[in-house]
């Protein structure tokens, strides 16, 4: 009985993870994906990756950002930024800029 109660409490704890935690998770994931994408673009510019690999990584990065965007509905600026990245073909510098723009959002969520 006590074990069941503990399990219930843990499940409740997981389910009740705060809205800001979910946003923090989304912004952290988005920043990492953007950095991964930027690295791919940087290597592609140098001719160091296969075209197929680079193309697929761009596609996967856009899919990942879509998921992150859904988790950032309460951060409209951040969500719009991700939307813009998904609809454009950003280069490594633009991606770096986007990453820098998301940093304050992560910091504020981290502090809350």
């Amino acid at each position: 009985m006590r074990g069941c109660f503990a399990l219930l409490m843990l499940t409740a704890l997981g389910a009740c993870s705060s809205q800001s935690d979910k946003q923090l998770e989304a912004v952290k994931a988005a920043r990492s994906v953007i950095a991964e994408w930027a690295l791919v673009e940087q290597q592609a510019d140098r001719g160091q990756v296969q075209a197929t690999y680079a193309g697929q990584m761009r596609k996967m990065a856009k899919d990942e950002l879509k998921t992150a965007q859904a988790g950032l509905a309460q951060q409209p600026d951040a969500a719009n930024l991700l939307e813009k990245l998904r609809s454009d073909s950003p280069d490594a510098a633009a991606l770096k800029q986007a990453d820098d723009a998301l940093k304050p959002v992560e910091n504020s969520l981290e502090a809350s």
Binding site: A35, M60, A61, D99
Partner: peptide
């Protein structure tokens, strides 16, 4: 670089 691989391809 702030990357915590979210994509296996990375």
């Amino acid at each position: 670089k702030g990357i915590s691989p979210e994509m296996i391809g990375t």
